[in-house]
Structures are given as structure tokens and as C-alpha cells.
Write a protein that binds this DNA or RNA. Structure first.
Lengths: 139, 139
DNA sequence: AACGTTATGTAATAATATAACATTAATTAG
DNA sequence: CTAATTAATGTTATATTATTACATAACGTT
């Protein structure tokens, strides 16, 4: 019974490795690096770097996680439904290393509509702001 | 004589290795990777990765070059006087891999003034746009 | 000249990421 | 349903990117 389980579910199912790795990243309050992920999932049977990188690639592709390029690290998407995987913005504290995904629809709209004179059609962007966060400034 | 040489020169002198590596990057019409730089300057006596990375670090720090984070590659600053090393924006063609530095004062002003509710003080940003360039679209 | 700072040289190794190949599971077309 | 196709997995080896550690030399100041 219950054959209809998941029938009309929009949310794309993740494969076993993808789910394990996504769960780990989601639980984390900081961006995780690939080899740190690896050492955390070895007890679950994921043994090789490539298994991690393949899952990461897929998760990035479907927008469940983002890569913080300046840190070679990955964090779960914080935006509703992960709809804006192709338009990412982060704030990074240079002191405590905290990274947050920026949710700002004006910024999003501005950059989405950005058009220079090159004639290039932009499909995607990634923006990383660096500074000192509130907590660190207070100290 | 000529003791006054460089006395009032604003332009900071580069060291030998820095100059060699900057010259190479400047001549290039595409971003260069560290080990590609290394193999290109070995004839000039730079033998080890660390020599390259040290020069690159310094050149990035003083704004003569920028790192394209998504490509782990370096290109010379295209903006006048390299004054905006802390505010960088690039357009990257996903087809031909061409990278250009974006010079757009409105974008620059917009991002410079960007302030979300986090209270974080931004000192620096890096923005990378991805798409398909004119030439590639035409094909 | 002595000092602090910046740059260099060299070897070793750490950290990040992919290639190549074999196999298995899931999806879909006939 | 079964063949065909696509997506995911497993495994080994290796490529690529970057840093640690330590020793020496050059430069700029006082």
C-alpha cells in the first residue's frame, strides 16, 4: 500500500549520497569544505573524494547548496525554495569567517537587470561581499 | 647622479619576481593560472610555486591584478590606476571562457553603497557574471 | 652599523579536484 | 515487460592548486 507516496511531490528526490551530504551541509552553521565533508560521512560509507564531489556538483546544479568560491566551501541555500541558484550573494566576515546568504530583492533585481555595453547576455552571477560583521565589530 | 629618481613617484616599484610575473599577466589576453605562470617564467629563474604565489599575493594586494575566483586564475587590472581593487566585477563567457573586467560606475556606486540589515560593514566585494558573449552568441 | 621589514630560494607536503574505468540502479521508450 | 538509456555509485590513481617550514639575501631606516 501507499503506492502513491511521492506521486505529486515537486521536491526532487535526492539520491542516497546526495541526501547524506545535503543533510550534513544543511545542519552545519558554516560552509563546509569537501574533504571535511568526506571525513564526516565516511562512517556512512562514502569513502572517496569523487563521491563527495559528484554529490556536491549535483546539489549545486539543482540549487540546494551554493559554493562559496573564495573559500572553496559549500553551504545550504537559505532562500525560499532555492529558486535563485543562478543569482547568489553572500556576506563574509573577514574576522570570524561567518558567511551568510544575502536575501535582498532589490539587489537581486538590480543585478538581474544589469546590462553593460558588451552585449553579453547574463544568465548567472555570484557576488561576495567582505567586511566585518556586527559581532566582530562590537568586540 | 639622478639620485632623485623615483622620489615623487606614486607608482609603487615592484620587486624582480613581482615585475616578471606582472609583465606576463599583463601581456596575456586571458586569465592565467599559477602553474601556467610558473612554467612561463622558469626561464627567468623562478623555479618554485611559492615564488609565484608570493608574487601573486602581493600583486593582488596592491591591486595590479585580480583573482578570478571561479577559475583560480589571475588577470591584470583593467581599471584606471587600479584604484578599485576592493571592488571588482567580471563577466565570464561560459562558452569561450573569455573574461572581462566590468567598468561600470553605476554598478560600482550601487554596490559600494549596498547595505543590508545585517549591520555588517562591507569593505570589499567581488562579483562574477556568467553568460554567453557576443561572439559566441553570433555563432 | 644595527635593526626591522620585505623579498627571495628551496624542499617538502597539504589541500583541492578530476580522469579513467567498471558496475549498479532508476527511468523511459518500444 | 524488457531493452535501451540515463543517472548514480564504487574504486584507484593522479592532476591541480596552494601552503608550511626553514634558511638567506636585499632594502630602508635610524
Amino acid at each position: 500500500m501507499n503506492k502513491s507516496k511521492n506521486k505529486n511531490v515537486q521536491k526532487q528526490d535526492l539520491s542516497k549520497n546526495q541526501q547524506i551530504i545535503f543533510d550534513l551541509i544543511k545542519k552545519s552553521n558554516e560552509p563546509l569544505k569537501a574533504y571535511s565533508i568526506l571525513s564526516n560521512v565516511q562512517k556512512k560509507g562514502i569513502k572517496a573524494p569523487l563521491q563527495v564531489y559528484r554529490a556536491l556538483d549535483k546539489l549545486v546544479e539543482i540549487g540546494k547548496i551554493h559554493k562559496i568560491e573564495s573559500k572553496n566551501a559549500f553551504m545550504a541555500c537559505q532562500n525560499s525554495g532555492c529558486q535563485i541558484a543562478k543569482a547568489t550573494a553572500f556576506s563574509i566576515c573577514e574576522n570570524c569567517e561567518k558567511v551568510s546568504e544575502i536575501k535582498n530583492s532589490k539587489l537581486f533585481e538590480y543585478l538581474k537587470g544589469f546590462d553593460d555595453k558588451s552585449g553579453m547576455k547574463y544568465k548567472k552571477y555570484n557576488l561576495e561581499f567582505f567586511g566585518v560583521c556586527n559581532e566582530c565589530t562590537a568586540k
